[in-house]
């Protein structure tokens, strides 16, 4: 199949794992509301042994957090394989192309191109929405940079970014007949892998994947199905009413409702584990993408329960904060140094 035999587009671990035919696991890192790199490493450390790639979200839900380029730069320093998410909401084509080069220079080898939630979904709805490019134009732009070695303007790059390009798909919302066609368009634009929205409705995914196979798209792109644990029926109801594009069938909500208090969290994890096992059986599915906001421990548990361990590659355990490369004590010491320096001059 084309997707396994095409020449390597990046030197990245995720591409190699997928092309070797492993069932891949990627997961999302909840970005901190902080300027402290330690918080990124703490969250990543929990995912260290359980995921092949870590997604750094770009203002998901239109809420501001640490930037995705910043998180990715920190992660590459500790040997993680981050997936840089770029949303079209906040940046125009000039900023986006600069970010692609900057991230690639920092060792980022995977980029997920997204439209992005609208500003009204977040806590700063007064912001200006950009949407200079749409996600398909963004994918194509990244591909032009990688394959043609030029900016969108045609100006040449001395070293093109060698990146594995991803896109999102949502099989669970209208217009459903159009969704596989949109996937085809994304592949044509440049998508090498797909990460879908949360899947809680397996029959709906089965139907979608059937259309995808009929069109032969599963031979061209790696499909990673989005999954995630639900903490309670209230969380489920909140998600389906407030998070754009999330579809949760009543059967799942009812199941959580019937579960006695105190066991709901475990039941939510169990549902997620079951969904992983079911989607794994579908032809054309190449992996799962775990999303659990501020629940990294649950992700580690679910990956273990679903029998997806050990992963083909484990990031070595280390604490990058201890290296004097960018440790906070060193920064503080240098601040003191300048104090005395400037005083001496005065």
């Amino acid at each position: 199949m084309e997707k396994y035999t095409s020449p390597a587009k990046s030197a990245g671990r995720l591409e190699q794992i997928l092309k070797a035919g492993h069932f891949a696991v990627t997961s999302e890192l909840s970005p901190p509301d902080s300027a402290d790199p330690a918080e990124v490493y703490e969250a990543a450390n929990i995912l260290r042994e359980v995921s092949d790639g870590i997604n750094a979200t770009d203002g998901s839900g239109a809420h501001c957090h640490m930037s995705s380029v910043g998180i990715c730069s920190l992660l590459t320093r500790a040997d993680y394989a981050p997936i840089l998410q770029i949303s079209c909401r906040d940046k125009n084509r000039i900023a986006i192309q600069g970010d692609i080069l900057g991230a690639a220079a920092m060792g980022v080898m995977n980029i997920l191109c997204l439209t992005g939630d609208d500003v009204t979904a977040g806590d700063q709805p007064q912001a200006k929405r950009v949407f200079d490019l749409d996600c398909i134009q963004l994918l194509r732009t990244a591909r032009i940079m990688r394959d043609k070695g030029v900016f969108l303007s045609g100006r040449e790059l001395t070293t093109p970014p060698k990146v594995f390009l991803g896109a999102a798909a949502n099989p669970f919302i209208p217009p459903k007949d159009w969704r596989p066609l949109r996937l085809a368009k994304k592949i044509e634009a440049g998508a090498d892998f797909i990460q879908t929205q949360y899947c809680y409705d397996v029959p709906m995914l089965v139907e979608y994947m059937k259309r995808v196979r009929d069109m032969g798209l599963h031979e061209k792109v790696f499909m990673l199905i989005g999954v995630g644990p639900l903490r309670s029926h209230r969380a489920a109801e909140f998600m389906r009413n407030n998070v754009p594009g999330v579809h949760i069938p009543d059967s799942i909500v009812d199941r959580l409702k019937k579960t006695p208090k105190g066991k709901k969290r475990a039941e939510g994890n169990k549902i997620c584990t079951e969904i992983i096992q079911q989607v794994r059986e579908i032809e054309g599915v190449d992996g799962v993408h775990l999303m659990a906001y501020r629940q990294e421990e649950a992700v580690a548990q679910i990956v273990a329960d679903a029998g997806l361990l050990p992963r083909p590659y484990t990031v070595p355990e280390m604490n990058p904060m201890e290296s004097d490369y960018f440790a906070m004590p060193a920064i503080e010491a240098s601040m003191g140094k300048y104090d005395t320096m400037f005083k001496a001059q005065a």
């Binding site: 609208d118 979904a121 749409d134 134009q137 217009p175």
Partner: peptide, 21 residues
């Protein structure tokens, strides 16, 4: 389209087929 998308719908369409925004 509030997001000015020229290549198809975003991933936020509501179940009733209405706009996310």
């Amino acid at each position: 389209c509030p997001k000015n998308l020229r290549n198809g719908p975003c991933g936020g369409v509501r179940q009733n087929g209405h706009c996310e925004v």
